[in-house]
Design a protein around this nucleic acid. Structure first.
Lengths: 217, 217
DNA sequence: GTCATCATGTAAGCCGTTACATGATTGC
DNA sequence: GCAATCATGTAACGGCTTACATGATGAC
């Protein structure tokens, strides 16, 4: 989880731990909580594993390390620079010598791709996968969304089956109803994401979600 | 978290660990996951703390330990008995001597009330509080819901403020939008719960959520 | 008699938290 | 010079998971 968040942010830009924590907090979906106590050890672990490396001095700022795909964090950085002028007098290695700026390595990028493609049932992980979805090629992005769609549909199926029966305590009932609504809502959202990814994949808005070849109608 | 779930289920009925796990799985909202590895230690801890006590033989079945309020788990039990006839030939202490049936104690009931009233930001905890809401007196139930409402409203406020600004990556944007929708949805649900609790509190459907006295219009 | 299920527990480990300790830089 | 913020880390601990170990009972 935290590995994905760290690598996803470092994909576009070299950052130090403290800044990383701030960026994490700006992501939606309850990532505000990550504390130094888990962030720094995670960075150390990733460094030992060769996924990130300490880089010299300045952060890359407007010239991202990696050429393509990098809209996300770059834009965050640009925005931050815009809204806090005068706090960014630091891009030349002037002060703050003791902070450690990390950059992602080739092996780290491979690890990031694995994590972005991973098929977990975890909601928070999926939220991160969406947040960094632009870092994946369109076809893989699409398949992540479609797998998620299938998992949610299955959850809804189970819940709906269970809802038919069971006790009638009003609060428990309301809770069940709400859960079903939430799942339906999530499903609609993923459909939206799938549609977005399809558009980016080939421009046409093809209705059939299955394979490319001729499916007998 | 798991303490609340255990005590909430034991409030209406004595149960052993294995059965407890099954009941947990039947609750909505991802409590299916609780495993024996956390359940049994939790039971042992609760027993050491004096919140539960091992009771003799049969579970209370249709004659709940505690008189009032106990609709919830009793109904689950009734339903289960109905749908699996022939599996419940056990209410007299016939077989299964080696299983440990637990009952809640007075101090456990106090602890349960504390947990039901607790003001946590945790979504899963709130789901449990709703599931067992019938075990609280109507006025306290209402105040739990209203506190939750305030917390959600605050979260939405923060998120909305942040949404106005920020980067424009399409997937990140979609994620933010979805988060806002989810919060709005949750808020509407809590409003529903508040309305329900108000009705049970005094029958009248009073519109003003604040204090009782005359508020200048 | 053997297999599935019921039933209870322990051990190792992951992932994260809070609290604590430390020090550099900047603004006033 | 002092406080606030920036910045990095360690220690202790909490809660939950998976995997493992064990054994009783009932169905066939």
């Amino acid at each position: 989880m935290i590995d994905l968040a760290i690598l996803g942010l470092l994909h576009d830009q070299d950052l130090h731990g403290y800044e990383l924590k701030k960026r994490l907090g700006e992501l939606p979906g309850a990532f505000a909580g990550v504390s130094f106590g888990s962030l720094y050890p995670a960075l150390a672990r990733l460094e030992r594993a060769g996924a990130v490396r300490e880089v010299e001095g300045r952060r890359a700022s407007t010239a991202p390390t990696v050429p393509m795909t990098g809209a996300l964090s770059g834009e965050i950085a640009a925005f931050r620079a815009r809204s806090h002028p005068g706090h960014e007098r630091d891009d030349q290695g002037t002060g703050r010598r003791n902070r450690k700026v990390y950059g992602i390595t080739a092996s780290g990028r491979a690890r990031l791709e694995t994590l972005l493609l991973a098929d977990t049932a975890d909601d928070r992980t999926f939220a991160l996968q969406v947040a960094f979805a632009s870092q994946l090629p369109p076809d893989q992005r699409l398949s992540v969304f479609e797998r998620r769609r299938a998992a949610l549909a299955e959850r809804l199926r189970i819940l709906t089956a269970r809802r038919a029966v069971g006790p009638s305590d009003p609060y428990l009932h309301s809770l069940r109803e709400h859960d079903a609504r939430v799942l339906t809502n999530d499903l609609a959202w993923v459909d939206e994401l799938v549609a977005l990814a399809r558009l980016e994949l080939d421009g046409t808005d093809q209705p059939v979600p299955t394979s490319i070849g001729g499916i007998h109608p």
